[in-house]
Simulated assay, not measured.
Amino acid sequence: MTYKDVIKNIKNKQFSPIYLLHGEEPFYMDKIVNYISNNVLDASERDFNQTIVYAKDTPPIQVVDAASRLPMMAERQVVIVKEAQEYTKASQWEVFESYFTAPSPDTILVFAFKYKKFDKRSRMYKLLAKTAFVYESVGVKDYELGKWIRAYVTEQKQQITDKGVALIAEFVGNDLSRLANELEKLFLLVEDGQQITEKDIEKNIGISKDYNVFELVNAVLDKDFQKALKIINYFEQNPKAAHIITVISNLLTLYQRLFKIHFLKTTDPRQIATTLKIHPYPAKEMLSKKSKHPPKIISRNFNILREYDLTAKGVDASGIPDAALMKEMVFRLLH
């Protein structure tokens, strides 16, 4: 069940007395919590019937007391416990045992347990699985980011270029809350009916269109050492623009994909994109340039990247600055 399905059920007044929202991705939990807090009760009912607390500041017994009260001049009340992962001890959750066994039919009690999963082996989880609605919020994998961005943009009746999708995915990563915030900012700044382009992203999000990890990977794909050198020089002057571990990770991903493309029995970019679980745009680019990177050289480059990954992580550290290591590494990859 997706978070939209959960919200749809709530909108249709199909309530559960307890909601346990847990998992590594806070974005979907926030959507559900915000919908509950803004829609279950009328504005006139919220003052006396809606309680929002943070677990760090609220002992479990106070939550039980709040949830056990009768609603005041309303059909139900809402109690929301944010940052419920702050209840770190089993003894804290055991305070809720009696309530979980027989929850009040007049209360909607919500736990937002963020950034990790609730222990499914625990007695409390097994009890909640019987009496509560349990929703696990799963993050988006890196290879799914492009699809997620395009779906989010389309849902808002906006447009974005393929390269814009790739650039913002590379720059922001899979922090969905930040990604949504950056996209919302772009929606406000781009004129109606106009596509969001790389130029819009560069201007309004603070990323350099020409000097970023995405363009460095493209320079390596093109075997353009001079362009790669210019980008690394920019990184040297702007250390926050890219970290060597991020660069190595992205180059490793590039070579892994190129290696697979060599042995796929298709030259259709869309089929390749589906197989590699990437957007068709980078699939098309890699397909057109795979001849520049024969499998034997790619195998050699795996070893080079492994060597620099260990050095960057402090194994046999030489004290060489990151930018110098990147220049040396890219030179060896391309020669």
Score class of each variant (00 low, 15 high):
residue 238 N to F: 04
residue 238 N to D: 12
residue 239 P to R: 08
residue 239 P to D: 12
residue 239 P to W: 05
residue 239 P to I: 03
residue 240 K to I: 00
residue 241 A to N: 11
residue 242 A to K: 10
residue 242 A to H: 08
residue 244 I to N: 07
residue 245 I to H: 06
residue 248 I to F: 05
residue 248 I to K: 05
residue 248 I to T: 03
residue 248 I to V: 11
residue 249 S to G: 13
residue 249 S to Y: 10
residue 250 N to V: 01
residue 250 N to L: 13
residue 250 N to W: 07
residue 252 L to E: 09
residue 253 T to I: 11
residue 253 T to C: 00
residue 253 T to E: 03
residue 253 T to F: 02
residue 254 L to K: 09
residue 254 L to V: 04
residue 254 L to E: 09
residue 255 Y to L: 02
residue 256 Q to E: 06
residue 256 Q to D: 05
residue 257 R to L: 00
residue 257 R to F: 05
residue 257 R to D: 09
residue 257 R to S: 10
residue 258 L to H: 02
residue 258 L to N: 03
residue 258 L to R: 03
residue 258 L to A: 06
residue 259 F to V: 01
residue 259 F to P: 04
residue 260 K to C: 01
residue 261 I to H: 10
residue 261 I to T: 07
residue 262 H to Y: 11
residue 262 H to P: 09
residue 263 F to K: 10
residue 264 L to C: 01
residue 264 L to H: 02
residue 264 L to E: 07
residue 265 K to P: 03
residue 266 T to K: 06
residue 268 D to A: 10
residue 268 D to L: 01
residue 268 D to F: 00
residue 268 D to R: 04
residue 268 D to K: 13
residue 269 P to H: 06
residue 269 P to D: 01
residue 269 P to F: 05
residue 270 R to G: 00
residue 271 Q to N: 06
residue 271 Q to F: 00
residue 271 Q to K: 13
residue 272 I to V: 14
residue 272 I to W: 03
residue 273 A to C: 08
residue 274 T to P: 00
residue 274 T to V: 04
residue 274 T to L: 08
residue 275 T to K: 15
residue 276 L to I: 05
residue 277 K to C: 00
residue 278 I to F: 00
residue 278 I to C: 04
residue 279 H to V: 01
residue 280 P to Q: 03
residue 280 P to Y: 00
residue 280 P to V: 02
residue 280 P to C: 05
residue 281 Y to F: 15
residue 281 Y to N: 02
residue 281 Y to P: 01
residue 282 P to C: 02
residue 282 P to R: 07
residue 282 P to H: 08
residue 282 P to Y: 05
residue 282 P to W: 03
residue 282 P to M: 03
residue 282 P to S: 04
residue 283 A to Q: 08
residue 283 A to D: 03
residue 283 A to W: 01
residue 284 K to W: 00
residue 285 E to L: 15
residue 285 E to H: 11
residue 285 E to C: 11
residue 287 L to W: 12
residue 288 S to V: 04
residue 288 S to H: 14
residue 288 S to E: 15
residue 288 S to T: 11
residue 289 K to Q: 15
residue 289 K to E: 09
residue 289 K to M: 14
residue 289 K to P: 11
residue 289 K to T: 13
residue 290 K to C: 07
residue 290 K to N: 04
residue 291 S to H: 14
residue 291 S to A: 15
residue 291 S to F: 12
residue 292 K to C: 07
residue 292 K to E: 12
residue 292 K to W: 10
residue 292 K to R: 15
residue 293 H to L: 12
residue 293 H to T: 12
residue 293 H to G: 11
residue 293 H to M: 12
residue 294 P to R: 13
residue 295 P to I: 09
residue 295 P to V: 12
residue 295 P to H: 09
residue 295 P to Y: 10
residue 296 K to R: 14
residue 296 K to S: 14
residue 296 K to N: 14
residue 297 I to F: 07
residue 297 I to E: 15
residue 297 I to Q: 15
residue 298 I to R: 09
residue 298 I to T: 08
residue 299 S to D: 12
residue 299 S to F: 09
residue 299 S to M: 14
residue 299 S to K: 15
residue 300 R to W: 10
residue 300 R to V: 02
residue 301 N to R: 11
residue 301 N to E: 06
residue 301 N to F: 10
residue 302 F to A: 03
residue 302 F to G: 06
residue 302 F to L: 09
residue 303 N to T: 13
residue 303 N to D: 13
residue 303 N to V: 04
residue 303 N to K: 15
